[in-house]
């Protein structure tokens, strides 16, 4: 997951459906292991997500466990003081990382940081490197939907994104799913009530 001080940027790469769910949940909810690893600038270890000793992520944990995640680990992707994002790893059974696995994770996060910048070094001015763009998911549909909601409600895009998140959370849907429905005009936000309404297509 790529992040900056300004917020979450999107996912650069996920290896399977479950890790996509982890990334999507964190993007939609704004909480989770990667976000903690980035903001706190340290490794985050949760060896037993289903029965944790401390409940850290009230919104993230339930759906993540439902998707099959039993242990989750996240490490900052950084070069020196420069922070680029976080690497998250998951397992379908509880338990800690071995010392070797822990070391390998740190090395992988470091190599990832170098690789992201090496790829971006080849980009045209003002552009995202094509290799990052192809493999990444920067949630463009969410930003398109924010723009549409901003127009529908006559509010700013930041406010529109908050409304989109709130709608997704209260309806138990992912933010990308709702964003696609907004762009496809099957959900519209009403200016008089400020609420999102479903408009099933005839």
């Amino acid at each position: 997951m790529l992040m900056s001080e300004a917020g979450l940027r999107g996912s650069f790469c996920s290896t399977d459906a479950v890790s996509s769910v982890i990334e999507e949940l964190q993007y939609g909810l704004g909480e989770g292991p990667s976000i903690d690893a980035f903001t706190q600038d340290r490794g985050v270890i949760e060896p037993n997500l289903a029965e944790p000793s401390v409940h850290r992520w009230p919104a993230f944990s339930g759906p993540a466990v439902e998707a099959g995640v039993r242990a989750v680990f996240a490490f900052p992707i950084r070069i020196g003081a420069l922070r680029l994002g976080a690497l998250s790893l998951h397992r379908d059974r509880p338990g800690p990382l071995t010392t070797d696995q822990h070391t390998d994770s740190l090395v992988t996060a470091e190599v990832t940081a170098e690789a992201i910048l090496a790829l971006q070094a080849d980009a045209e001015a003002g552009q995202i490197a094509r290799a990052l763009e192809v493999d990444g998911d920067f949630h463009y549909v969410v930003h398109q939907a924010s723009g549409m909601i901003a127009a529908q409600l006559a509010v700013g895009v930041e406010e529109a994104l908050v409304r989109l998140r709130a709608y997704a959370f209260s309806h138990g849907r992912t933010i990308t799913d709702v964003a696609q429905a907004v762009v496809g005009q099957s959900i519209r936000f009403d200016r008089s009530t400020g609420a999102g309404e479903s408009h099933p297509r005839d």
Partner: peptide
């Protein structure tokens, strides 16, 4: 991101 938001506003 700004381009995607502007597309959405125009479409909306």
């Amino acid at each position: 991101i700004a381009i995607e938001q502007a597309k959405g506003m125009l479409a909306g």
